[in-house]
């Protein structure tokens, strides 16, 4: 049977669907975090070179991956909203942005805390960390532009255009920062150890999935509030059980 995807693109039906899905993402996320960190801390051995500090990678690497992909997904939704004029995709874009920015911040924070024991400095102008910082600026740009425009429609479309331009620039920024880094410092610092023990890889993969599930759960919750806010004048919102209660 062909699922009529467009049925779910209407905010009202999506609101109900998202409501049902959130627990299915939130609970597994918590469970996987516990499992992933258990493996990471109790099964994965102490690293020969870095001792115990390397265990930060179980949150640092997923956070960096998340921050990058969430920006691209946000830009994708924004572009969809811009081209097809579908309000729901623009709402998804502004629902993802704060969580993406959050992961960028976590990546920077955990990167700094890992850098201190590893290279003796809280902040290392390494290509990856620097690009992460610029990515955080791009998130702030998207969020502040969207927040400073009152009319929601114009806010969505303007921020969407910025997100698309930003996503075109992300690779350019990354390679120029890499180029800048090699010019000034010789070689970039290898992040992960030479050969990673299987338990380490498992732990990182599980926490990565956990982060994805967490991000989806939070984004869905936020998009439901945005839908409520934007559709507050509609009848279907007025008839909602939770509104009546």
């Amino acid at each position: 049977m062909a699922i009529n995807w467009f049925k779910y693109s209407a905010p009202s039906t999506f609101y109900g669907l998202a409501g049902k899905l959130i627990p299915w993402f939130a609970l597994p996320a918590a469970v996987l975090f516990v499992i992933g960190l258990y493996i990471g801390f109790f099964i994965a051995p102490t690293d020969a070179v870095q001792g115990e500090a390397y265990r930060i990678i179980f949150i640092h690497v997923p956070a960096s991956i998340l921050s990058m992909f969430l920006y691209l997904i946000m830009a994708g939704y924004a572009a969809l909203g811009l081209i097809f004029n579908t309000r729901l995709s623009s709402m998804m874009a502004s629902a993802i942005a704060p969580t993406g920015a959050l992961f960028a911040f976590i990546s920077l924070w955990t990167g700094a805390l890992w850098g201190k024991p590893m290279w003796g400095a809280w902040w290392v102008w390494d290509a990856r960390l620097t690009s992460e910082l610029i990515l955080l600026f791009l998130y702030f740009g998207f969020i502040s532009l969207h927040a400073s425009i009152d009319d929601p429609r114009r806010a969505d479309r303007a921020a969407a255009l910025l997100a698309v331009v930003g996503s075109v620039n992300v690779p350019i920024i990354y390679f120029s920062v890499k180029w800048w880094n090699t010019l000034h410092q010789g070689s970039t610092i290898k992040f992960t150890g030479t050969s990673m023990h299987v338990a380490m890889q498992q732990a990182m993969f599980i926490t990565l999935v956990a982060c994805w599930l967490y991000a989806i759960a939070v984004a869905l919750t936020r998009v439901r509030s945005i839908i409520l806010e934007r559709e507050r004048h509609t009848k279907w919102v007025a008839d909602l059980a939770e509104v009546k209660a």
Binding site: I134, G141, S144, V165, W179, L183
Partner: peptide, 24 residues
């Protein structure tokens, strides 16, 4: 201010190549 906040990150590659040339 908002304009600069949006645009400065996008101008970073230009800054890097411009200064990189002189440094080189």
């Amino acid at each position: 201010v908002l304009l600069s906040l949006l645009v400065l990150p996008l101008c970073i590659p230009v800054l890097i190549f411009g200064t990189g040339a002189v440094y080189a």
